[in-house]
Design a binder for these strands. Structure first.
Lengths: 178, 178
DNA sequence: CAAAGCATGTAAGCAGTTACATGATTGT
DNA sequence: ACAATCATGTAACTGCTTACATGCTTTG
């Protein structure tokens, strides 16, 4: 579970509950995880069992108690080791590409419509990202380096989408030109 | 199993054995699957059970018999439905980004070294892709449309890598400039 | 003589997803 | 009145991965 390490990173920034973590993973630029409950709550249990995080239970009335997790020294050591791991190449899973590969036999107008629809979804997603970025959001900024990194990560994601969009448009134009 | 549909796409191009399919998935641009045995052979069994592919066993001496799979009409129908499915957005899983997000506290030279190493791996992978593309390889080209699509897909993958590389370089320069 | 390629398959497991389950509070 | 937010968790499942198992042939 590699979300495990990312959780440690967050907790090194500040203590948090499972709920907060899952929002981070679902929303923040650099994380590809959906932030589903099973993974986050499961990983926290495991981290706690392993002594990588501490736990304070804060009772609330009319709501489940908040379980606030904090990183421990062993947790920091694990995080530090993870940060230095060799980086793998980015993996891009674009279902649409797999489909395109076998789509040449579709009627031309239909293929064009499929690509157009893809462009629209990309444009929509880019808009949402840009808006989210504009509003800033709650992200770590403990130093100018950290600010720079998070800004770069957000830009990266947006640029990737825009490149994909431009590519799809060129492809559609190219197909029409045949 | 969505590799299932991609297999149908290949078989609609030409009959093939599991071994050939697994090579395609491991090597060809538009497919993100590793082409591991379990998935390919498993999917073929399933497709055969479902009547989406036919099977001809060609005995060989001194080697296991080749099991040559062919697409059937129900298989073609399934493929056609898949091609028209709504395209999801590309998912990018870049472990390195997740690590970067929490790396601001690393000693600057170490962070720089990590980014450099990432750049080198990207450059290496791009070189391999470019070389593979130059040599052409065995890909479908039943029409100018199909040729165009496969070329575009290969370009897309290469461009994505080069954008990532350029981004990493800019980031490293930016960090140094602080 | 070793490595890569051809050719099939199985076993075990990890990571991640959606959906289920509960229930009060706040905002539209 | 309905949806979203806060807050915990569980169940069932899919997709994908590495490693194991076998064994001959071709290439370097």
């Amino acid at each position: 579970m590699s979300i495990r390490s990312a959780i440690l990173g967050y907790l090194e920034w500040r203590p948090a509950t499972g709920y907060e973590l899952k929002k981070l993973f679902a929303e923040a630029a650099p994380f590809h995880w959906s932030g589903n409950n099973n993974q986050v709550y499961g990983a926290l249990l495991e981290l706690h069992r392993d002594g990588a995080v501490g736990l304070e239970v804060v009772p609330q009335d009319k709501r489940p108690a908040r379980k606030v997790y904090t990183i421990t020294d062993p947790g920091r050591a694990e995080l530090s080791a993870w940060l230095r791991e060799e980086a793998g190449l980015p993996e891009i899973r674009a279902d649409f590409h797999a489909r395109l590969a076998w789509s040449a036999a579709l009627p031309p107008p239909e293929l064009e419509a499929l690509i157009s629809a893809y462009e629209e979804r990309l444009a929509g997603a880019a808009l949402i990202l840009r808006e989210r970025e504009r509003r800033g959001g709650d992200r770590p900024a403990r130093s100018s380096r950290e600010r720079l990194i998070w800004t770069a990560l957000a830009e990266n994601r947006l640029a990737a989408m825009e490149h994909e969009l431009a590519w799809a448009r060129r492809l559609r134009a190219g197909l029409r030109g045949l």
